[in-house]
Design a protein around this nucleic acid. Structure first.
Length: 269
DNA sequence: TCGCCTGTTCGGCT
DNA sequence: CAGCCGAACAGGCG
């Protein structure tokens, strides 16, 4: 379930388990995530080791001792799993990196939307992808300037990884909910003040979610996401502020939840 | 069985 | 040419 906070959790997890161990083998159950030939990936990794990590938005890079990086993108449903014995191997493990300790790092990915590739140079990769600054690092002025230029629904602008990296569907909904802005309001009609508020909400939501390791059920009560995905039938789909049922619309092909009372009935034209 | 889903890419249109 | 949009990708799950 990877948006920025989840991928940050993955980064910390991998840092804590996989660094400075010699890679002895690359096990490929399904080559679909690999963006290069299996042989090329093997040649780069076997005998090598991971020595550090970098995250930009939802993109994670594992630095190789020999230089360059292994890039992981977890798609919609991917996650890393560190395991030892065969019986601990997770379901949907597509590619595994085995270490000389006997442990392995599995790239688990049920829906196969994830990607793995050798990336020699992160800066060049970021430029080529036009990937924006990470959401935790983008200066307010840049965020604001770029956002106010977009002539599309504010929620869709927030999802644009070329504007700011790391925001996914639930964070975008959460941000406009907290800022009391209708998701369909055109970004170029926002005020500077609203942009500033969205920037504050972005940091608040990301740090909150990182702290709770993206356990949505544990989020504090004021957050939309908790109500959106909870198992608790008594509050599921309700406005955290007590305004009753949330409204669901489709925006850019994604399910979008908002409160008509908190965020207004009709977007500002 | 049907519809839904946390992400990115690509082809086609304006 | 740039920007935008919907479809496609794939498969589990309620």
């Amino acid at each position: 379930m990877p948006e920025l906070p989840e991928v940050e959790g993955f980064r910390v997890y991998i840092e804590g388990t996989c660094l400075d161990q010699k890679i002895t083998q690359v096990v490929v159950h399904d080559a679909k995530p690999l963006q290069q030939e299996v042989e090329e990936v093997e040649a780069a990794l076997v005998g090598n080791s991971f020595v550090g990590t970098t995250r930009i938005g939802k993109y994670l890079f594992l630095h190789l001792k020999s230089g360059g990086t292994l890039h992981l993108h977890f798609g919609m449903t991917g996650s890393p799993v560190f395991f030892k014995d065969d019986e601990e191997r997770p379901r949907f493990s597509r590619v595994e990196f085995t270490f000389d300790s006997g442990f392995s790092l599995a790239f688990r990915d049920p829906r196969k939307f994830g990607k793995i590739s050798l990336v020699p140079n992160i800066a060049a990769f970021q430029k080529q992808k036009k990937l924006a600054d990470d959401a935790l690092k983008v200066p307010l002025a840049d965020f604001s300037t770029r956002l106010l230029k977009k002539k599309k629904a504010v929620k869709l602008a927030l999802l644009d990884q070329n504007l700011v990296a790391g925001i996914g569907n639930w964070i975008a909904d959460e941000m406009v909910f907290l800022a009391k802005i209708h998701p369909e309001q055109l970004a170029n009609t926002l005020t500077e003040r609203q942009a500033k508020r969205l920037h504050e909400c972005l940091l608040e939501v990301c740090y909150m979610a990182i702290e709770w390791v993206s356990d949505y059920e544990s989020f504090p009560d004021q957050y939309l996401t908790k109500y959106r995905w909870t198992e608790d039938k008594s509050i599921a789909g309700l406005c955290p502020n007590g305004h009753g049922e949330l409204t669901r619309i489709t925006l850019g092909g994604r399910g979008t939840y908002y409160c008509k009372i908190c965020q207004g009935e009709v977007p500002t034209a």
